[in-house]
């Protein structure tokens, strides 16, 4: 019980003091997971829309794979990314291991299936309703995909938030490809693991509380933006 009280006190102090180490770690977490989300959106939205709209051989199998990939274990993705980026791996030349870029790539691999699979479902549902009309209006494939994505923007915003949540909360991938290097690749989750190992549970919990608060804040902002948007257009 007193541990929990300590943890909240620690979290509060960390936030109020704007502890520079904490600020750095939070900024890196946001930057890595934010960038991973942007990349995942750039890949997953068009890909999901294409699978949602097109009919081709093997589509069902592909959808099963996409849905299953939503549950990829982060540590597995981290290991694969590590093997690729290792100096003795195929992409070793790029010297990306233990950099924020490597963490972004690993998280992109984690988040893209979520964005793609949920986008596919959303676009397919919307296509049932709208696609014939769009084709009748003379829309080409890219225009239909774009329009359906825009029509699904509120659902897709939630999809992107889910992806962001998965990225910022995972530790398995970033600790392997990032290495949890202080001031370089240390993010919220790897810092929590570190403090847990050091036995400083109040600090670890405090960081955890900051992470949760951050997630709440990001989602509240997104919700606010959505509500305003919904009122203006819809």
């Amino acid at each position: 019980m007193s541990d929990l009280v300590d943890a909240f006190a620690t979290a509060f102090r960390l936030i109020v003091d704007l502890d520079p180490d904490l600020v750095e770690i939070v900024a890196l977490s946001l930057r890595v997971s934010g960038a991973a989300l942007v990349l995942a959106a750039l890949l997953g939205l068009p890909f999901g829309a294409a699978v949602g709209l097109l009919r081709f051989r093997g589509r069902r199998a592909l959808i099963v794979l996409m849905n299953a990939a939503m549950g990829l274990p982060p540590v597995f993705v981290g290991l694969v990314a590590y093997m690729l980026l290792s100096r003795s791996g195929p992409l070793g030349l790029l010297e990306l291991l233990y950099t924020p870029t490597a963490m972004i790539l690993a998280q992109t691999a984690l988040v893209t299936p979520i964005v793609a699979a949920l986008t596919r479902q959303a676009v397919e549902d919307l296509a049932d309703e709208l696609d014939e009309q769009l084709r009748s209006l003379g829309a080409g494939f890219a225009q239909r995909a774009g329009t359906l994505l825009y029509e699904g923007r509120f659902t897709l915003a939630t999809t992107l938030l889910a992806g962001f949540g998965r990225a910022i909360a995972e530790v398995g991938a970033v600790i392997i490809v990032g290495g949890n290097i202080a001031h370089l690749t240390r993010v919220m989750t790897t810092a929590i693991v570190l403090e847990t190992n050091r036995g400083d549970l109040p600090l670890a919990l405090g960081l955890g509380i900051v992470l949760v608060s951050l997630a709440v804040l990001v989602n509240a902002c997104a919700q606010g933006v959505q509500e305003v948007a919904r009122r203006v257009e819809s």
């Binding site: 709208l130 014939e132 009309q133 009748s136 003379g138 029509e151 257009e233 819809s234």
Partner: peptide, 18 residues
Amino acid sequence: AAEARALVFQRPVLLRRS
């Protein structure tokens, strides 16, 4: 012909905008 024809559906299909 493709651009010279238009179809209005039984139930109006409108986009989520003005």
